[in-house]
Design a protein around this nucleic acid. Structure first.
Length: 507
RNA sequence: GGUAGGUUAGUUCAGCGGUAGAACGUUCGGCUCUCACCCGAAUGGACGCAGGUUCGAGCCCUGCACCUAUCUCCA
């Protein structure tokens, strides 16, 4: 493939970046790294009315957390800078003028209200209003194609608001190539004359996007499917400027977990999962929106899950490190249909990643939790606990519920289990067991096992008859790691104390 | 309504002309004092519908149905 791959992620700073945006960034990143290319971050802040101050920082932080940092962007390697469109404002005007001069664009003076009226009018007649050659020269619309040169200059001189529209060619069939979808044919007569330059002096997305992609020497445009309908316009703009077009790839939408439709920012609240990578505080309302990071997800698990949303490696492998993703990624294996997001599968990924972490890594995350619970312990002990319980956990924050009995006596006993396992004779048996335990000089796993198992065998009773009530005494429920591990870790005295507690409470 | 895209097991998805697959889920079994992990097995499908091309179609063509995106001086 090309030895000069340059891709960009171009979000609009209108709020926190949601997971769909992160997925787009990820695919761009993977594609860039796969081809030894460059991953550019460009901030598309041409809409001043929707600008949110802390959104850009959020985007940068989110990419950072996901471990997919950009190579070029605001404040970093500014070879093609600036990377904020608001700071490139002056640039776009000359390009709009170039198109006006060579007949690919024209001035339009129609007000938003007038256009609205036209749309409603058409709708009432069961038609769709299209601002293009069907209408633009019939005198209903006020633009430089129907007005004389003088009239146009007069209006502009009088300070009348105007926009610049693209003059879509008539009666052409465009044959477009998309790396994901293949060939797409479009009849230009169905296209709108899109606004390129707004009356507020700012370019629209369409103009700024093409100009910047060209100037920044972008080789591949990888973006969401919601942009597919504007591909014809973008392609025509490259033609109009006489520029070589980059290759395009439109990623399938991320669908909500239940029902149909695109995953929206509000779906998370409704269904109880985060939609954003990081927690976000809305500075105006003070609302805090939860994030995957704060909910306890590992970033590599989150990224792994996102990578499989709309892409598959063609093998049965599901677990990928970032490096492995870079290695395996291929635009040809991106699917065309929407990818349904699954919160359950996301949890599954997190569980898998948690199991892969070493005890040493996990204990660092565990210690603050213990501290929070007011437990003082040493790191070695905590690490042993982690080793014993981690296979039952999906999140690090599950650790406390799975391990509290290592540090605290059970406060209650699972009533169902108690009823089933604690029989008439159990109290006596447990009292006898206490004696056995007291007799163990060195309370090691091996010794405890030998003595207790030996005693059970000599009593000629079932193993479970003793072990189940013993587990109930120590843990409070019938779950958890190996009992001999637990006993030796809490120590002989605590073990005896807990058995006696149980005899008192359950006997 | 126009335009574009989609439709394969309960769910998420592979399969892109040659006897319908995986993962997750569910159920059962093995291993365990228990839960979990792990291992094994079972379960499961008019490949949206109807035509056509072909020796042969989930794959190609046509029509229809349904779903989605988009049609803002938003990106």
């Amino acid at each position: 493939m090309s030895d000069n791959v340059r891709v960009r992620f171009a979000p609009s700073p209108t709020g926190p970046l949601h997971m769909g945006g992160v997925r787009t960034a990820l695919f761009n990143y993977l594609f860039a790294k796969k081809h030894n290319g460059t991953f550019v971050l460009r901030i598309e802040d041409t809409d001043q009315t929707r600008y949110v101050a802390n959104a850009e920082q959020y985007i940068v932080d989110a990419l950072e957390w996901c471990n997919i940092p950009f190579d070029e962007g605001p404040g970093k390697n500014e070879k093609f800078g600036p990377y904020r469109q608001s700071e490139r404002k002056d640039l776009y005007k000359q390009y709009a003028e170039e198109l006006l001069a060579n007949g690919w664009a024209y001035y339009a003076f129609d007000t938003a209200e007038q256009l609205d009226a036209h749309r409603k009018d058409h709708e009432a007649n069961g038609k769709t209003f299209i601002y293009n050659w069907h209408n633009r020269e019939k005198g209903r619309l006020v633009n430089s194609l129907v007005l004389s040169e003088e009239e146009v200059q007069q209006k502009i001189a009088a300070g009348e608001k105007y926009v610049v529209r693209f003059k879509t060619p008539q009666d052409q069939t465009l044959i477009l190539e998309d790396e994901v979808r293949g060939t797409i044919k479009i009849d230009t007569n169905t296209l709108d004359d899109k606004i390129l330059f707004k009356s507020d002096g700012m370019p629209t997305y369409h103009l700024a996007n093409i100009v910047d992609d060209h100037l920044m020497e972008i080789s591949h445009v990888i973006r969401g499917e919601e942009w597919l309908p504007s591909l014809p316009l973008h392609s025509l703009l490259y033609t109009a400027f006489g520029w070589e077009s980059p290759k395009f790839a439109h990623l399938p939408l991320i669908l909500k977990p239940v029902g149909k439709g695109k995953l929206g920012k509000r779906d998370g609240d409704k269904l109880g999962f985060p939609v954003f990578p990081l927690e976000y505080t809305n500075e105006e309302t003070g609302n805090v929106t939860r994030g995957y990071k704060e909910d306890g997800y590992f970033s590599d698990a989150f990224v792994n899950m996102l990578a499989l949303l709309g892409w598959n490696p063609g093998t049965e492998q599901e677990l990928f490190s970032l490096e492995a993703l870079v290695e395996a990624f291929d635009l040809a294996r991106v699917s065309k249909s929407g990818a349904k997001f699954s919160p359950d599968k996301t949890k599954w990924f997190n569980q898998q990643y948690l199991q892969q972490k070493t005890d040493n890594e996990l204990v660092e995350l565990y210690l603050p939790i213990l501290e929070n619970q007011g437990v003082t312990t040493d790191k070695d002990f905590a690490e042993k606990v982690v080793a014993l319980i981690k296979e039952r956990a999906v999140f690090v924050q599950d650790f406390w519920d799975l391990s509290s009995f290592f540090f605290q006596d059970p406060i209650e006993y699972d009533p169902k289990a108690a009823k089933k396992q604690w029989k008439e004779t159990t109290g006596e048996l447990m009292t006898e067991l206490v004696t056995v335990i007291e007799g163990i000089e060195e309370f090691s796993i091996e010794n405890a096992q030998t003595e207790i198992k030996g005693w059970i065998t000599s009593k000629e009773i079932g193993f479970g008859k003793v072990m189940q009530p013993l587990r109930l005494s120590l843990v409070g429920k019938l779950a958890g790691p190996d009992l001999f591990e637990i006993m030796t870790m809490v120590g002989k005295e605590t073990t005896i104390k807990r058995i006696q507690n149980a005899i008192t409470n359950l006997g």
